[in-house]
């Protein structure tokens, strides 16, 4: 069936007659898929960002979650993220080229440097009690940078294939919920209303939408950048887990419970990936 349409337009061109009427939709059709896809990237990354609002829901019942719940929320977010990194590596790169490895190292350097530059390298990210006045803003800034890396993951996955991109966007969306719960708990503990906290959680994820579209556009325009971008996302995601999500977990809840939550979250993503691949 699909092979019939180009031959029809070719014969239409040679016969003349209603040439523009046939040719115009044909040429529009070559533009339309990427345009539609860009809209889909916008749609799915917006869904992923908006999912952060759900993080405020548990706080409706319990204004200040116990430290253990914060730990488990972080572990859940960490497991989903490692699963996403594995998916990017296995589905996207199959056999990892050198450009992918260099990209991954660049991802590590990017997150590491942005933390040092913003002076947040040694910041405890889960403080509910007394802190410095600027603490809330620092945590928001970290969340914005964190979301940027996730946006690249969504955009690049969309460039690999649409189903994979949707899968990645949904994985990140689910990941955003526990992450936003932690952020909302920090903000509400500092006197921000729950509704404002939810709004800020979504707003801090807007960088995700922007980076998803930029990454998708870049990789679609220059496919040779794909392994670099995939590698970058893999390196950045793993680094974020190791530097932001996991370190405090172990002080908030028991090691065994943290390990179980992390590995179950990771296993679910891995199972879905290996069944889909």
């Amino acid at each position: 069936m699909p092979s019939a349409s180009p031959s029809a337009s070719r014969s239409g061109r040679s016969s003349g007659g209603a040439l523009p009427a046939i040719d115009l939709p044909a040429s529009a059709a070559t533009v339309a898929p990427t345009l539609d896809l860009t809209l889909l990237v916008l749609l799915y990354s917006t869904v992923a960002a908006a999912a952060a609002a759900l993080g405020a829901v548990p706080l409706v019942w319990r204004a200040r979650p116990s430290v253990r719940w914060i730990g488990w929320a972080n572990a859940l977010a960490a497991g989903l993220m490692i699963g996403a990194a594995y998916a990017l590596m296995v589905v996207g790169l199959v056999k990892i080229p050198w450009s992918g490895i260099v990209g991954a190292l660049l991802g590590v350097v990017f997150v590491n440097r942005t933390h040092s530059a913003s002076g947040t390298a040694d910041l405890d990210l889960n403080r509910l009690e007394e802190t410095t006045p600027e603490y809330g803003y620092q945590v928001l800034l970290i969340n914005i940078l964190h979301s940027a890396a996730e946006g690249i993951a969504i955009g690049v996955a969309m460039a690999v294939s649409l189903p994979f991109g949707v899968f990645m966007a949904l994985a990140i969306a689910v990941h955003n919920v526990p992450e936003a719960m932690v952020l909302c708990a920090i903000l509400t503990a500092r006197g921000v209303s729950l509704r404002d906290a939810a709004t800020l959680a979504v707003a801090s994820n807007v960088s995700q939408i922007l980076l998803a579209i930029v990454a998708f556009a870049l990789v679609t325009a220059a496919p040779m950048l794909l392994p670099w971008a995939l590698g970058f996302a893999v390196g950045a995601l793993i680094y974020l887990v190791m530097a932001e999500l996991l370190p405090e977990c172990y002080r908030q809840a028991g090691r065994t419970s943290i390990a179980v939550v992390t590995i179950v979250a990771m296993g679910i993503v891995l199972l879905l990936v290996s069944l889909g691949a």
């Binding site: 190292l105 680094y239 190791m242």
Partner: peptide, 17 residues
């Protein structure tokens, strides 16, 4: 501190791959 740990874990993981 967590950033030196994160650098080591991520880089050795990549090296192993």
């Amino acid at each position: 501190r967590r950033h030196p740990v994160a650098v080591t874990v991520t880089v050795t993981l990549l090296a192993m791959l």
